[in-house]
């Protein structure tokens, strides 16, 4: 499933992602956003619901966040560590 929230500010990216995850039965949710603060809220909401997050830069000031349901029980500490590592790597440019 795809969720395009470009043009939206907080809290909409995280709010809509949370709603979409609640409706999502199978597969992954891809969130396209141009709101930088969403990078620290959307993956966080995903982790709360048991999803792994993959964050990539999709253009200047634009990012794609893919939330995939974690097989088994999500190790939340490891998931958050992975999110912050990705956010750190985004800063390498």
């Amino acid at each position: 499933m795809k969720l395009d929230v470009r043009g939206e500010m907080c809290p909409y990216p995280a709010m809509k992602a949370k709603e979409a995850l609640a409706k999502l039965k199978t597969g992954a949710l891809t969130v396209l956003t141009d709101h930088a603060p969403a990078l620290s809220t959307v993956p966080w909401e995903g982790a709360k619901a048991g999803y792994d997050a993959e964050i990539v830069e999709a253009g200047r000031g634009e990012w794609r966040i893919t939330l995939t349901r974690h097989e088994g029980v999500l190790d939340r500490a490891a998931a958050l560590e992975k999110i912050s590592a990705q956010l750190r790597d985004l800063g390498h440019g």
């Binding site: 709360k48 939340r76 500490a77 958050l80 560590e81 999110i83 912050s84 750190r88």
Partner: peptide, 13 residues
């Protein structure tokens, strides 16, 4: 509702 949720850390690179 998530007692084991640690705060987001940012390890040094």
């Amino acid at each position: 509702d998530a007692p084991d949720f640690p705060p987001m850390s940012s390890r040094p690179g």
